[in-house]
Design a protein around this nucleic acid. Structure first.
Length: 594
RNA sequence: GGGGGUGUAGCUCAGUUGGUUAGAGCGAUCGCCUGUCACGCGAUAGGUCGAGGGUUCGAGUCCCUUCACUCCCGCCA
């Protein structure tokens, strides 16, 4: 008991009947009957109905108080009569007969209502975030976030990991995203960078002999926002382990994810042992390296069909001759779907900027044949061959895309989502995790035609590392992996390359001299030269995990004080101009806009 | 940097082929109402139709420019 409350607004029950209590909170809602006033008092823990009659000396004052005024109420707990019980409230069996009240905080007229399920413009929500956060749904999301992070900490500790903080003011990294820079006062003209991730530090933690590290790590990247990507800052569950192989990292993450998702969601986890899909298989079957495995549709490679003489689909055949490829999606038992379904998909594909999706349905009377706009171009034998390749059956349909490999992958990947949704064959009430493995170490840059690192230059290549064949660099796979859930990339990770000599060789392939590597990555290379353990890790995105658990599509719904798309904090007015004096101290001059 | 969407009362939105004084619900203010829990009923106030320019007898509506928010592409080792 303190001067403000004896109980919270979520805890009183019939057991407390006739107790004299005090509650403090916000006026959530009033129902004014003229001679009888109901007043719902709200705090973090719940809502309690309070009631006062017009015979009471304070009646007229309470009647006039605006919603969201913060008040303290002294009163008595009354059991509600049976017909006035509210089953939607934990405290719905009781109400408080108001004895006296005290205003603790007045309110101006509200720029947005708190007690409403309406959606509001982001601008007003972000400017008055402290009001927005009072609203039930986002309030619960933020509480969920706290509980998830707390659970992760305790699970990681149980798994033998130690949590360490790494520097926020560090050095600019030469590759990767754009850095946030912080000018140094003591070192004029020089800048710190905020870490894009504690990547190098966590490797240094391993080299320092701490064996298993984790951190709920803030990461800063100065890149443009998306619905699932905050501008500026986000959080990763940063993990690194010594003396491990890829499989050991997977075990830890699978254990954690399954415990976490079971604890915080009732949705079904489809594969408790996460399937491993190679990068190349994923690009073929799903058209992306972040497949949504809740969707059963699969893409088939069908280019060969269009080289046959008994296929007369000339548009595709011509393109194939020029080097295009053809892939298709089979939909099971769609022979009775109306024409509008197929045309709708085709039209949608054209809207996506593709040349559309050709389609036909496989039918059989005396022999197998294609029905639909392009069905007539295929001989019975060619369709049978197509059925063999794609495991299609009579009654199924096929949607075909033709073009450059990356274009076909893109449109069919999107088409999987679209068609799966239209056919209602995606179980949205489930989680489908998978690992994407065997990423290529290198790739050819489309523009420059040069060989570049496809992911992380510090990943360990696969194969015999003492005698690695470097003659076909594009063939080299890395111990580099992603974890994906429901089409959301939660994280990438890798077994790291802890052998400096090997690193020089790999950097040589992308055109870096030893001296350049030494200069650019001096900290890392130097540390790896003094007895580095084999190590590897991963860093699942905390915000995205919470989005999945909360069923939210926008990262701002699980972030307490997010910035808007232009990386501005509308509540705190950041970024802002600073005093001339501050700039002077930092040896900075601002170039005036024309 | 590029493309799409949105912008009308404090909030959420409607407003037809350009045509009288721009509307509704919630909220606010005032009044009535003793069992509501999205209480009910009545009244009142509240508008630079994002901004600027143009076409027109006449623009919330059409055209141009611009700003803000948002979604996407680029970007995110």
């Amino acid at each position: 008991m303190n001067k403000y409350r004896s109980h919270t607004c979520g805890e009183l029950t019939v057991k407390d009947k006739n107790k004299k209590i005090s509650l403090s909170g916000w006026i959530n809602k009033k129902r004014d009957h003229g001679n009888l006033l109901f007043l719902d008092l709200r705090d973090n823990y719940g809502i309690t109905q309070c009631v006062i009659e017009n015979s009471h000396v304070n009646f007229k004052e309470l009647e006039k108080l605006p919603l969201e005024t913060v008040i303290k109420i002294d009163g008595k707990v009354l059991e509600r009569s049976k017909d006035t019980v509210n089953k939607d409230l934990n405290t719905g069996m009781i109400e408080i007969s108001i004895n006296s009240y005290e205003i603790l905080g007045n309110t101006k007229e509200l720029p947005l209502p708190i007690f409403s399920d309406q959606e509001y413009a982001e601008e007003i929500r972000l400017k008055y975030r402290f009001l927005d956060l009072r609203r039930k749904k986002i309030h619960q999301n933020i509480i969920l976030r706290s509980k998830v992070i707390s659970f992760i900490r305790s699970e990681m500790e149980k798994l033998g990991f130690l949590e360490f903080q790494t520097p926020i003011l560090t050095s600019s990294s030469p590759e990767g995203a754009r850095d946030f820079l912080v000018p140094s006062r003591l070192n004029p003209g020089k800048f710190y960078a905020l870490p894009q991730a504690p990547q190098q530090f966590k490797q240094l933690v391993m080299i320092s002999g701490f064996d298993r590290y984790f951190q709920i790590a803030p990461c800063f990247r100065d890149e443009d926002a998306r619905a699932d990507r905050s501008p500026g800052e986000f959080y990763q569950l940063d993990i690194e382990m010594s003396f491990v192989q890829q499989e050991n990292v997977f075990e830890v993450v699978e254990t954690l994810m399954i415990n976490l998702f079971k604890k915080f969601s009732d949705k079904k986890i489809i594969h408790e042992k996460f399937p491993k899909i190679t990068f190349s298989e994923s690009m073929l079957k799903y058209g992306t390296d972040k497949p949504d495995l809740r969707n059963p549709l699969i893409i088939s490679e069908l280019t060969e069909i269009f080289k046959r003489s008994d296929v007369s689909f000339e548009i595709f055949k011509k393109l194939v001759k020029k080097g295009s490829i053809v892939r298709g999606i089979i939909t099971k038992n769609t022979k009775d779907k109306p024409r509008s379904f197929f045309d709708g998909i085709d039209k949608w594909a054209k809207e996506q900027g593709a040349s559309g999706l050709a389609y036909f349905t496989i039918e059989k009377d005396t022999e197998v044949k294609g029905k639909g706009p392009v069905g007539k171009f295929f001989s019975s034998q060619s369709i049978q061959e197509l059925m063999k390749i794609s495991k299609a059956e009579v009654g199924d349909s096929v949607f075909l895309a033709c073009g450059k490999k990356n274009e076909v992958e893109k449109i069919l990947s999107d088409a999987r989502d679209k068609i799966g949704h239209e056919l209602n064959i995606i179980n949205y009430n489930s989680y489908a995790f998978c690992w994407i493995v065997d990423y290529p170490m290198f790739e050819k840059d489309e523009n420059s035609k040069k060989i570049v690192f496809s992911h992380n230059p510090f990943s360990m290549p696969q194969g015999d590392i003492k005698n690695l064949d470097l003659s076909n660099p594009l063939e080299i796979k890395a111990y580099q992996y992603d974890i994906v859930c429901n089409g959301v990339e939660l994280s990438s990770g890798a077994i790291r390359n802890h052998i400096p000599e090997l690193m020089y060789k790999l950097f040589a392939i992308v055109g870096y001299e030893k001296e350049q590597v030494d200069k650019k990555f001096s900290g890392m290379i130097n540390a790896l030269s003094y007895g580095a353990p084999p190590h590897g890790g991963i860093a699942p995105g905390i915000d995205r995990i919470i989005m999945l658990l909360a069923g939210e599509k926008n990262i701002r719904e699980v972030t307490m004080f997010p910035m808007n798309q232009n990386a501005q904090d509308l509540m705190m007015n950041a970024p802002s101009e600073v005093d001339e004096e501050q700039l002077k101290e930092l040896n900075l001059l601002i170039k005036k806009k024309k």
